[in-house]
Design a protein around this nucleic acid. Structure first.
Lengths: 180, 180
DNA sequence: ACCTGAACACCGTTCAAGT
DNA sequence: ACCTGAACACCGTTCAAGT
């Protein structure tokens, strides 16, 4: 068989496992999903998963990367809406990942791989939010603090779901005094 | 033996277990502390712990209650400082509990006992913060949103430690425009 | 290179038996 | 009422063996 055919299959199978893992992690929970259950859902044996991923944390990181890539792709479609609306859209979109936010925070303390992903994610979130606040007319001198508060509030809204109205009030307080 | 003597011993032993568990959970981590390790640290057998606590989550709740009671007691000593300073003090004080914040969020989704504790905690935090903001002169109409943002930022500062300077900038942005 | 059956050490929890 | 020794089912992970 040609040497350049295998990698395609490999990628496809890897993605199947990630997709199955994502579904289980989001619906059942990370701790609650055993490798046995996950493997069965993906249609492979337990140890096959270990051929593709070093351990359960590595699989978690792969799932996070996939979910994040999806979210960033969809974000482009709302890039021209007002800033407040964009933030609310992001909260809505990310709420599906709620259970995983807590898991990432808990595992980051133990697993270097998850810890590294967590840092990368916050660097990205900081950049996106800072750009947004700058465009919306935030003063350069309190941009950093405003961004940090923004990230914290976003995470808070994710992990402690609020009724639509309260959610909007919180985000509007965040963007108060900005010209768009 | 008198019927009113046992309860004292019982309380004492229970507290020993909670104290040992708190130390392990904070230093080693909740997931990383096995019931075997924990029992050994408390000087009892594994199943003895199950005589005092229904399961590991119930033990976690007991640990949380104890840490919270300690924190509330110490809080009284700073009750007359300016509001910004009080918030900074709280962040400093609560940072020891950092690892447990993520654990509570993760377990709350699965364990009703931890979920209930989490709700009770937020009701308390909301009350304390709302009182503080009101006293500091926040407008009544955006008190709710400001409180919510305050809680989220507090949690964010706990789980994502910042250098002293950034931390202060964030808290000052929160209390901006208030008269003390 | 990829996959498996069978085992590994360990986990939280339970139970029958003791005092 | 309190505590234990011994077991339970299950967990994430590994390894020798197959193709």
């Amino acid at each position: 068989m040609p040497a350049n055919r295998r990698p395609v299959d490999r990628e496809a199978k890897r993605e199947e496992i990630v997709r199955a893992a994502a579904a289980q992690f989001l619906e059942v929970g990370f701790d609650e999903t055993s490798m046995a259950r996950l493997s069965a859902a993906a249609g492979v044996t337990t140890n096959t998963v270990y051929w593709y991923f070093e351990d359960k944390d590595a699989l978690l990181v792969a799932v996070l990367d996939q979910l994040l890539a999806d979210a960033l792709l969809q974000r482009e479609q709302v890039a021209d809406r007002p800033w407040t609306e964009q933030v609310l859209w992001a909260v809505d979109r990310l709420e599906r990942m709620r259970r995983l936010v807590a898991v990432v925070h808990a595992r980051a303390a133990t697993s270097p791989a998850v810890g590294a992903w967590h840092e990368r994610f916050h660097a990205l979130a900081d950049d996106l939010l800072a750009d947004g606040f700058r465009d919306a007319g935030a003063a350069e001198e309190d941009l950093a603090a405003r961004t940090r508060v923004g990230v914290f509030v976003l995470e808070g809204l994710l992990t402690h779901p609020q009724p639509e109205q309260e959610r909007r009030a919180v985000v509007e307080l965040l963007t108060a005094g900005l010209h768009r």
